[in-house]
Design a protein around this nucleic acid. Structure first.
Lengths: 234, 234
DNA sequence: CGACGGGTTGAGCGCACTCAAGCGCAGTGG
DNA sequence: CCACTGCGCTTGAGTGCGCTCAACCCGTCG
């Protein structure tokens, strides 16, 4: 864990964050002075449930998973944070603790802004608020379709949906259509805990999809979608 | 469907809505002039997925369910809106359509504010924005714990959780402890579609809970929680 | 080398689903 | 008032899908 992020020049770092994307050069500068940076190795926890998290955390590089451990000993993954995503917004607006954990699934660099600094930032640049609102609404969207998946769809459909989701987050539009390969953000067990099944089931279904020629696996982590339409149906 | 709401004096109506709770008398007055009211009978749809919904809708009386029909012919319920809850916030902040339906499960009165009016309201009273933010964060909370329930918990636990949720929304704290009865907002099929099981399963589990002395059913719709702790465990 | 984590495969089982029938109650109309 | 109808709920029987448990494989790392 180091305090500096070698890979990003200061202003560049803040500009990559969608929340600040509307600010101009000078404004970005003033934001940058408030930001602290941190690095986490793969497997390290960025945050534990119920912990004190008095600020906003933005993922700058790498991916992280937010998850809950149930009393029954299972792990349910709620979000996969990609670069540009943030969490900790809850502590900014309501007086409640966040009750999930966040763990780096690969090396991760983050930006942090304290609650106090952020509230002043909002006063100065109200445009940020509307960016946050947009992001929250989008997150509600994703959670809702996740519930539809887990609650009402067959296991096959859930696998299909999660593959499409990962592809969309990892590639841009034309890349998906050209069957470019991408890297799964989670291992089999992680995918299983994301869609509410067991790792064995994920394993079997992926092999089945490959046999049917819908996808092609390169090693364990990389995947290529050959027939996007077959994934969309059902 | 009538255009006026007989049951609420104008300012009273707006004051009951948490979003406006921080405004003072005069401010409330100015909000009231923007509000249009509507009534829906049980079973009527307040809103269809993909429809044009250019404004915010606040439930004033009665309860409504938000649900999706899956391609496989199942219905997944996403939210139960109680009086004071709102929906349609999505259309205010992002340029996307809402893709669930909303149906009255009992007679419902609503307040409507158009997108245009609401945006001016926000400019005038920025406090409303923070209320909205709070509510969105709370909603994310609820969706997350819903995913934990459906995805990682046993059917028994899901039934327990949903009963507690309905009790909390219907009663206040001391009432729950004194085992007061309350009315279920959904029938068996509705509960089933909310927690991702079949109606038969709900039926069986409820009877089991009654046999075990954890709950007591009065008719089909009313229920009394006798042993709150047994519902909480697991 | 052995240990370990991640992945795959197989066998068997249990739980919730499916399908089907019957019950009870409310509302309707003769 | 009763018969009729329809809806919601219950109950039973049988089945199938995904889970559990266990073994094994493979590549990596100390």
């Amino acid at each position: 864990m180091s305090e500096t992020c070698i890979n990003c020049g200061h202003s560049l770092c803040a500009r990559r964050v969608p929340i600040f994307s509307k600010l101009d050069g000078k404004e970005i500068e003033s934001v940058v002075t408030l930001i602290r940076r941190k690095h986490f190795d793969k497997g390290e926890n960025l945050f534990f449930e119920g912990g004190e998290l008095q600020g906003l955390i933005i993922i700058n590089r790498g991916r992280a998973k937010a998850y809950i451990n149930t009393p029954e000993g299972k792990e349910q993954i709620l979000h996969i944070f990609f670069p540009g995503d943030f969490f900790g917004e809850k502590s900014l607006f309501v007086d409640k603790k966040t009750e999930y954990n966040v763990k780096a699934v690969e090396p991760v660099d983050i930006c942090m802004i304290s609650k106090k600094d952020f509230q002043e930032l909002i006063k100065k640049y109200p445009g940020i608020t509307s960016k946050i609102l947009q992001e929250l609404v989008n997150r509600i969207d994703r959670l809702e379709s996740m519930i539809e998946n887990i609650g009402a769809k067959s296991v096959d459909s859930r696998i299909n949906a999660v593959l499409l989701e990962f592809a969309q987050k990892s590639l841009d539009e034309n890349q998906i259509d050209s069957a470019a390969q991408f890297e799964l953000p989670l291992n089999r067990e992680g995918i299983a805990n994301y869609i509410g099944v067991t790792r064995e089931t994920v394993s079997r279904k992926l092999n089945l999809l490959q046999e049917e020629g819908v996808i092609q696996m390169i090693g364990n982590k990389k995947i290529k979608i050959l027939d996007k339409n077959r994934l969309k149906s059902e």
